[in-house]
Design a protein around this nucleic acid. Sequence first.
DNA 1: CTTGGAATGTCAACGACGCTGACGTATCTT
DNA 2: AAGATACGTCAGCGTCGTTGACATTCCAAG
Lengths: 169, 169
Amino acid sequence: MAERPGPQGGHGLLYLTDEQLRKGIEAMFFAYRGFTSAPDRILEEQDYGRAHHRALHFIQRSPGTTVGNLLDILGVTKQSLNRVLRKLMEDGLVEARVGREDRRERHLHLTDKGKVLEKLLADAQRDRMRAAYRAAGPQAVAGFRQVLEAMMDPEMRRHFDGDDKAGSR
Amino acid sequence: MAERPGPQGGHGLLYLTDEQLRKGIEAMFFAYRGFTSAPDRILEEQDYGRAHHRALHFIQRSPGTTVGNLLDILGVTKQSLNRVLRKLMEDGLVEARVGREDRRERHLHLTDKGKVLEKLLADAQRDRMRAAYRAAGPQAVAGFRQVLEAMMDPEMRRHFDGDDKAGSR
DNA sequence: CTTGGAATGTCAACGACGCTGACGTATCTT
DNA sequence: AAGATACGTCAGCGTCGTTGACATTCCAAG
């Protein structure tokens, strides 16, 4: 994969100049803002923040996931996550079920109410994503995904790869 | 790498399914973390945060830019930006020069000391970016940039386009 | 000269969301 | 019985966002 253009002197590696890299860095910055702006607007109205969105997203993606697993994915402290989860549970958006095999574990699920908000957020974010994907085309999307994947920390790539849906469990 | 021998139903819009969009959303999340982690580690040692990095970056990019212009680019309140700029000026990393034409404006410049830190941060971030670019290849990079640009808010694209440092090289 | 607006800076207070440290409890493992 | 694990929580702190109010400086217009 990623066949390398050889040492062809002039313009072969133009995309690796400092200036090109700087543009890429700024593109990430500006795009990430656009990426989060739609859900942010929704969250703001309800006294939630991005942290709540992230929790809802990953619980939705992996129903029954444990607190520890979520900590691993989100990369925050348990105190920080706990503050978020407590509020989501108080508000009846998330439900924690004691593990059957290991009763120390709490398996997290969205309630119907939680699913409603999660879907609202996901739809808003997907709309933005879809518009960008459509404007750029399938080939650009493939490249986009390749670069993002290469940019992740290896441990994060572990959480990302392999969860190709497949409803397996 | 294409791990999708999928039996697509003939149409070429497979990349716009909700599942594909969800993967794109998570890719942005995980990649952005990787993208910021290197500079974050450096900043942490010096009592600065991402906000300081952003200010240094955009002052470096456009020496002499005004506070108002920076507010526009960064999309924060002047109170928030002022806190950051004040510290950077106290620490002797940034210098504000009164405008010649309009003496109300402050034109921001990096001091030599500021340039040193900015370069340290930029190098760390570019290293990560370069590795990702190299792994993905030029064509993927082009797609990456197309999608990111389409994802920006139009007003942000204004700040992004056109600053090609044209004529250089 | 006075008035008003624009650009900038400052103070105070607050909220979201990261962090560390310490402690408690239930539960599983050895 | 001892130790490790998973989770929750209290207490405190830091960064960086927010709003609101107010001062200053400068430019321009009446």
